[in-house]
Design a protein around this nucleic acid. Structure first.
Lengths: 118, 118
DNA sequence: CTCCTCCTCAACCGGTTGGTTGAGAACGAG
DNA sequence: CTCGTTCTCAACCAACCGGTTGAGGAGGAG
């Protein structure tokens, strides 16, 4: 279970139920019971989902009496957004660069396998 | 295997090997063989990884001769970024709103369950 | 104290996933 | 045509995942 943080975050968000929980947690904190209400799965299953979110750092919990309110953490979103943005930008730039590459094509019709890794 | 698109994208990116491939594809297109070079897993495994990325719409392939160059698609990144940004912003706003909520707390110490979805 | 509520732990199950090996399709080069 | 290269399909396997049920810990409420 020692996967890198990013993998855990992506994996946690790969489940629609979990994404829905996150969406609802942006509105307000909630207990496990409240979180479980909309879904017709067992409370234990919901508990597991929350644990996955917690392990991914997307969510934190404080104990107040016997309730364990679930709270959304925004930081990890920033981290992921940053990661994503980086590659999105790179892909876009490459897309733009393509025109230059095509324009700079010499008489040779067989492209010289330009895949040298820097 | 009929998961929603967003789930497929997140799931695809939940694997470090696949994320590394995506990173390298931002630099240049590559064949399966080129992609496979850095990893000590079988070529078939790499082929499977590429297929997962393709099913997620992160990557497209054209056939030129017997080579099947893999090309990164930027659109899906936009989609995911948009999704993420929406919740990141919501979480931040809620974080900011928290001060107001605390300030507006009446004499009642039991918060009135304000979880109505708009 | 006893009871009730909220939640978690543990064991189990079927389906998916990441990996393997082996066979073979598709295509260019000789 | 034959050969070599590139890549995929198929079957299999161990591990993980999302779900279940059953048991039980941790606090308030009576």
């Amino acid at each position: 279970m020692a996967a890198d943080p990013l993998s855990r975050v992506f994996a946690a968000l790969a489940d629609p139920t979990r994404r829905d929980m996150v969406a609802r947690l942006t509105v307000a904190d909630a207990t496990v019971n409240e979180l479980a209400a909309p879904y017709d799965i067992s409370l234990q299953a919901v508990s597991k989902h929350v644990r996955v979110l917690e392990d991914a750092g997307l969510v934190s919990r404080s104990r107040s009496a016997q309730r364990r309110p679930v709270h959304l953490e925004a930081e990890v979103f920033d981290l992921m957004t940053k990661w994503l943005e980086r590659y999105r930008r790179a892909a876009e730039e490459r897309y733009r660069r393509l025109d230059d590459v095509l324009a700079a094509l010499p008489d040779d019709d067989a492209p010289p396998e330009e895949g040298a890794r820097p």
